[in-house]
Design a protein around this nucleic acid. Structure first.
Lengths: 150, 150
DNA sequence: CTCCATTAATACGATATCGAACTAAATAGT
DNA sequence: ACTATTTAGTTCGATATCGTATTAATGGAG
């Protein structure tokens, strides 16, 4: 097959992915209280799914954002009482990020609120199709990730 | 299958998509001159693939961004001499966006520069796999798009 | 034709993102 | 043990995003 055709397919892929990302972010954000946006929720969700007590730098790496961005995101979460920053007992330069009750609650309520919408989506894209595309996307993501951090 | 399991799969899907979007944007932006970012390129590419002479409002709708954001993006492109804004002869309130030579050239050079990287990616994800996932993602995107604009 | 609701674009203010520079603490080399 | 380098986090300045309000042109109702 012609090279340009293959490249065209890749452009289509990244184009679809970009649009879906935008749409899914918009859907998430309408569920969130004013002043809380997707990156805030992503951090709450991560601290809950993995574990809290992680350092800001670790979070910045996990989300592939500059540390200054993570500082800003965390200060927003902290100001809204959704997380607590405590000193890191193992390193006086560092901090630990802990979820508050309010933070856990907001995360759970948001997940619950998204349920019905995802149900709707599930009627469009079957579980089989999901099981087909997610592993391929994972492989793609892992490769791109490696290519970025050589 | 359990509902929570299905929802979990959807979260994985949107999670992968979010990360891939971020990585692909980063790859694109390292190819772009300082001061030009992904949204600028997206507009140049759109004007080239579809056609130029479109209005700012039409572009804002196409990219699903607020008009104020598009105004800002276009002013950046204009400042760098990549597009020209002309009055719309059919409506004195409106404008038309035209590519300059420099704009066309930047778009083409960027596409060309991305080629080798996409070649690399193509070694990881086969054309067959692409043909499998792109239509599913299109279907998902179309549904989400409709759900957003009722 | 006149008035008024609608529409296209911009101005402005609030918050977000990110690179460069900075501070303080930890660690490596000698 | 002492100094130089590295590392964690913040501060600061530039630009981006987006909601609200504003201005100017349009188009429809009477």
């Amino acid at each position: 097959m012609n090279n340009d055709v293959i490249l065209g397919k890749y452009f289509s892929l990244f184009n679809e992915i970009g649009i879906i990302e935008q749409l899914s972010r918009a859907f998430l954000e309408v569920q969130l209280p004013k002043g809380i946006i997707a990156p805030h929720f992503a951090v709450l969700n991560h601290l809950m799914r993995v574990n809290d007590g992680q350092t800001p730098l670790f979070l910045a790496t996990a989300f592939q954002v500059p540390k200054t961005t993570m500082t800003h995101t965390l200060s927003g979460l902290s100001k809204h009482g959704l997380i607590e920053m405590r000193p890191n007992p193992k390193d006086a330069r560092s901090k630990q990020v802990w979820l508050t009750e309010a933070g856990q609650e907001l995360r759970n309520k948001t997940i619950a609120a998204l349920g019905p919408y995802l149900q709707q989506v599930a009627e469009q894209v079957s579980t089989d199709e999901l099981d087909t595309i997610v592993p391929i996307l994972q492989k793609l993501r892992e490769y791109m990730d490696e290519a970025r951090n050589p």
